[in-house]
């Protein structure tokens, strides 16, 4: 509940302030957002499985974002940033899909 509240507050803040993103941050922002989304869906699934843990969620959220951004950053330094971005997006998308499938089974029993 408090998480959903925070999400809404964050969206509202983003809409209100409409900040400009610094240039160095622009390639990593979408990756970070997708990684965080993955963590969020994983948390939702764990919640429905009844195994949700605040600590695990916080740690996995931060770790997900940091690792994703770090991998892309290293890829950029190595000259394969675009390919690594694609790879990370693919991996995170697969995880999101499987998590959503589990959530769907919980909620819809189908």
């Amino acid at each position: 509940m408090i998480g959903a509240l925070g999400l809404m507050v964050g969206i509202a803040l983003g809409l209100v302030f409409d900040p400009t993103v610094p240039v160095w941050m622009q390639p990593y922002l979408p990756i970070a957002v997708v990684a965080a989304l993955d963590a969020l869906f994983g948390a939702l699934r764990a919640l429905l499985d009844g195994i949700f843990s605040d600590k695990v969620f916080v740690v996995s959220f931060i770790a997900n974002v940091l690792v994703a951004v770090l991998v892309v950053f290293i890829g950029d330094r190595l000259g394969v940033g675009g390919q690594l971005t694609t790879g990370i997006i693919v991996v995170l998308s697969i995880r999101i899909f499987s998590n959503v499938a589990a959530i769907r089974r919980h909620l819809l029993s189908a």
């Binding site: 925070g6 964050g10 969206i11 803040l13 983003g14 809409l15 989304l37 969020l40 916080v58």
Partner: peptide, 10 residues
Amino acid sequence: LCGLLGFFAV
């Protein structure tokens, strides 16, 4: 964290 996610997604 959720707030940050929403913020940066937007």
